[in-house]
Design a protein around this nucleic acid. Structure first.
Lengths: 231, 231, 231, 231
DNA sequence: GATGAATGAGCTTTCATTCAT
DNA sequence: TATGAATGAAAGCTCATTCAT
């Protein structure tokens, strides 16, 4: 076989300390935060990430990626048969990071209220963090494109379901232990997720303003407070 | 299909001068519902709308627009110097329609609760309405692009502010007349708008499912019920 | 409509005198012997012909054709959507020329024997005529490619049938008027055509040598003499 | 299918050393009928043959050959510096097989008439034998390309001369022993060879039809019958 | 106003080839 | 021998745009 297979790297990511930046834990779900060249595929993913942030989806050409990665277009095609395959792989990795987030949140605290807020904080971008903003916008563009492709929608859907379930069970846990009043966990989860997505979109289209912060406040005020109120 | 592609809508359109005709109430915010060609610019806007719905943003080429409009690319360039200008104009018109909606909502009822729900209904797309879904997705792509362009962001922001103000004042009215409990109208408005935007995004990326409907329910349950509750 | 339709030029080709070269009558069936630019499509056909002769099928790239025609690749794609369409059009014209040849031969003489020889002379290339040799080789390559394309084979077949019928009826005429002895006209026609094709192939692969001339002699000796012999 | 793609032909191949095994008599002139890999070059030749048959000349890429051979492109380049060299080597082998055929024919019978027919049968492809048809077409494309290369023409010419001589001396033998009437053996040989080549070309461009069979009949009727007739 | 013709930049992709191991 | 990784050149094609009429 001449071209490397798609095998998922089995190396653990727990030794994040080797990453030179301490923020990697709660940082952006960029698929490639490694510093050293590691392997070519990784470098290409890296470059894809950077181009996506800096030029947007429209500027995400093979040429730009190759230039950013410091290689040739041909090499990219050597590792990823088509651009589509490249983008799908990229998106896959991104979604995988999101999954990892869910685990992290659950391992941080047991308090449902704290968990819910932690959840919100993860999916909201600080106004100052221009990079991560650009990334979320780019990923949104990417998802919009990917949605056209039959077969990738399922992946998006599966990922969305995973996130939703995670949030819903946080809420369900809160209900069970009496912290929250009785609501439909899934409906509430949808509301929160939609609000966060909407806030990010607002930020992507209107600028870095405080959009997601107000979203956080709104969720706290209207959802959290509502959940914990005495009926 | 929402708008006959060949003009000649069966209902009388002779009173086209009064652009705020009541039939537009539940219609899509398409920028070009006129029946007779009016002028060329209008026809081009029309074609843009159709191509956007049918082919998505990626398929929105000058060639496609010209073909749909039944004219030549040259003529489009005669009316709009660049593609950018064309799209910006198109987006402008779209935003203007949204403004008109706001007026309509306010003239329909005085009850704050009803107004708020009417608001939500406008900005939510029925699962069955494939055309309008495609349109919202396309407009989202469009806004994402436009956001790159310094100077257009202000317009998007102004429009967003207008919508937000409208919703906020509906809420403020409700507070004033005692229907709603005391909350910050703007924060609440943001939450609602974000939730709707997020729901539409979910729909655009995951499929026509019931996304926006659950959003509606969630808003009703968590926001409205919360607003009207006895403290 | 933006792109010119495929309409066959209705202008007569009988005024070949305006062509500056007198050999155009029995010359190569090149699809574009016109001197003045005429129309762009024609110029492209012209360039295709020249590139094909000079570089062979392998060198027949859009770039080369554009360079030869002194235009841009884009323009070629403006007139012919794909390279395939271009080549097919080119081949079509070539086949049309062959058809015209058949008519010409029939109008030149009534004598079956002379006709048969005229026929052979048309489809044989003089060793000195390097251009026409290159062309026949190129056309052979072209036909080999076109044969892969379902739907074009029919055209090749139709053309082959036309030529075969023409030759067969020359022979049949000869039989009828007693010039030739009784043979199956179609079998004989096939033999002659195959021999000519084979000779051209020999020339194309082995060099300009006298291949087709010996073929002519062989046909005369083994076919013609055989046909006119007293049984 | 003519040659098992996975080696292990059911008949014993142990005497592979005597490459002129009699089973090759009616086989295709494929340059690589050996069963066990022998050496790498052989396997590459083998793969070339298969790709050529299945994909045609246009699909004969180094990648395809490597894939078919189950090795890497690099290895092919190790054995053959350039693609050109590879193809030329391949063509050489093919021509060598043709030479072997000539010997075989001569050893089969002494009767000039039978020999001539055997000759024709070898160089004609049965309509049902799709594989060998594809191969002949591919070889024709190959020869057309090779002809461009100064220095290889000589090889083609030498081979052609060998075949022609063989056929001519069959005819000459026939004349000598009184079976055939007095003709110029070389001219007659050319006619027969051209007719066969032409028929194969017709088959390659127009389809598997009965082209070569009619060619056989025509040769028998117009050449053989003519040769043996009483003057 | 309106058109067809023409262009140049750039796109994704493929190919034969090379090089370090 | 044998390979995977990498490359530069070139391929066909699309796009927004311009220009003469």
């Amino acid at each position: 076989m001449e071209r490397p297979s798609n095998g998922s790297s089995s190396t653990s990511d727990s030794d994040a300390s080797s990453s030179s930046s301490s923020d990697s834990a709660s940082a952006s779900p960029s698929p490639a935060p490694e510093a050293e060249p590691a392997d070519a595929r990784e470098e290409i993913m890296d470059a894809t990430y950077h181009v996506l942030c800096e030029e947007g989806y429209a500027g995400l050409t093979m040429r730009a990626i190759a230039a950013e990665a410091g290689t040739s277009k041909s090499l990219i095609h050597y590792h990823f048969d088509t651009k589509e395959e490249l983008l799908l792989t990229f998106l896959e990795r991104f979604l995988d990071r999101l999954d990892e987030w869910l685990v992290e949140i659950e391992s941080e605290t047991d308090d449902p209220e704290a968990r819910l807020l932690a959840f919100v904080d993860r999916f909201v971008v600080q106004p100052a963090d221009a990079d991560r903003q650009a990334f979320w916008r780019a990923v949104l563009e990417l998802r919009l494109q990917a949605a056209h492709q039959e077969g990738f929608r399922e992946q998006l859907k599966a990922n969305n379901d995973a996130i939703r379930s995670a949030l819903a069970s946080i809420i369900a846990d809160g209900i069970e232990d009496g912290t929250f009043r009785e609501v439909d966990p899934e409906t509430t989860a949808d509301l929160v997720l939609d609000a966060l997505e909407g806030a990010r979109t607002r930020q992507a289209t209107l600028g870095p303003e405080e959009a997601p912060l107000t979203a956080r406040e709104a969720v706290r005020e209207h959802v959290l407070d509502d959940l914990v109120r005495e009926e």
